[in-house]
Design a binder for these strands. Sequence first.
DNA 1: GCGACAG
DNA 2: ATCTTGTCGC
Length: 173
Amino acid sequence: MPYQPPADVAEALRVQDELRSRVDLVGPGPTAPATVAGLDVAYAESGDRLAAAVTVLDAATLAVVDEAVSVGRPAFDYVPGLFAFRELPALLAALERLTIRPDLLVCDGHGLAHPRRFGLACHLGLVTGLPAIGVGKTPLVGVWDEPAPERGASTPLRTAARWWAGCCGPGTG
DNA sequence: GCGACAG
DNA sequence: ATCTTGTCGC
């Protein structure tokens, strides 16, 4: 069965609400991954075509051990919170062209830091069965204290309860 | 009620 | 996302 994108926003929201509960938040996660895949998408100037690229690195040496590209069309209009539906098909097509199965996915866009706790990284991880981390360049939800300037420093992303209302229950800190 | 809103 | 312009820092 070929992938069918949601017909509209309402259906996309239903899909997220249905898949959200299937995200594994308690498994071991990316324990000592030997290979890490980075994923991103670039658009044509006209915006009606896109190319998804996946590069797999040896986690220890950072040597490129595999790579793949797929070209296609955005599968959904850009809607904040529904961004995954736009790029997911092309990203999955590129992943299918890999000759190896990476141990970890790192994608351009959020994962759990999402209004319904189901951003692109969650969607990718669920569909592929691989551990996935989302790396958003700009915030979508949450507030935070600026991390220390040292490389590797971090602070928690705190999310106002209102974002999770009716979605994921209490205690989302 | 209005604005903000990953890429 | 992509384009454009201008500014700043190395």
